[in-house]
């Protein structure tokens, strides 16, 4: 067991303690800007549709994802008739041929277009990665300005065993730095930015 020897060497060699910096100055006051959020996602190769009712989702998917046959929706209200029984199967492998998964996002971050998703909502962790195409529904009132606000307000305490910030579709530029969307994860990302009518 090397545990004790490693810890002893660290204790002997570590420098004097220094205080942690205060991060409060990085916080912004007020909500995040949905327009800025939208712009970043589009820069990252995602598409954003502003909706005021979930009923609009169906027509938008028919128009923009006409080839999607096997569609999973984690909430019945997003897309009536879509598959919602996502829990049975072989550890997520059953989703390999899902064309489109529509999932809820807890909140978005205006500065980088990232959307926070946890296994509390998605149940099967691999779903947003293994699906060929991904759609996330997030409310425009749930946009925070920066990552500091995200951690301070929205995820200060652990919830669920897994959480992920998703910003755009899966991509790579490993071949001569040419950007290609659709590496291993979802080939496209659609965000439904939901603002209910007042």
């Amino acid at each position: 067991m090397s545990r004790e020897s490693i810890l002893a060497a660290i204790k002997k060699n570590q420098p004097e303690q220094q205080a942690l910096p205060d991060l409060d100055a990085f916080r912004r006051t007020g909500p995040g800007d949905p327009a800025a959020f939208r712009k970043v996602i589009e820069t990252l190769g995602g598409q954003v549709f502003e909706i005021s009712s979930y009923a609009e989702i169906q027509a938008l998917i028919a128009e923009h994802q006409p080839d999607a046959r096997k569609i999973i929706s984690l909430q019945e209200q997003y897309l009536p008739g879509a598959i919602t029984e996502w829990e049975a199967g072989d550890g997520g492998r059953q989703f390999e041929n899902v064309d489109l998964a529509i999932i809820p996002g807890q909140f978005g971050v205006a500065e980088n277009g990232a959307i926070w998703i946890t296994d509390v909502e998605i149940k099967e962790r691999v779903l947003p990665f293994i699906t060929q195409h991904l759609a996330i529904v997030v409310a425009s009132q749930d946009i925070v300005p920066t990552m500091h606000d995200a951690y301070a307000e929205r995820i200060a305490h652990p919830g669920g065993g897994f959480g992920v910030f998703i910003a755009g579709p899966s991509k790579t530029a490993d071949i001569e730095q040419s950007l290609v969307l659709g590496a291993h994860g979802a080939k496209s990302l659609t965000v439904f930015l939901y603002t209910p009518k007042p």
Partner: peptide, 26 residues
């Protein structure tokens, strides 16, 4: 956990000039 805010803001911007990596999995 809150220190992730600082590092996730710096990492991808410094690495490839992206605002953040596509996936930051916790």
């Amino acid at each position: 956990r809150k220190h992730l805010g600082v590092f996730l803001r710096l990492l991808a911007r410094s690495a490839t000039g992206q605002p953040i990596t596509t996936y930051s999995s916790h």
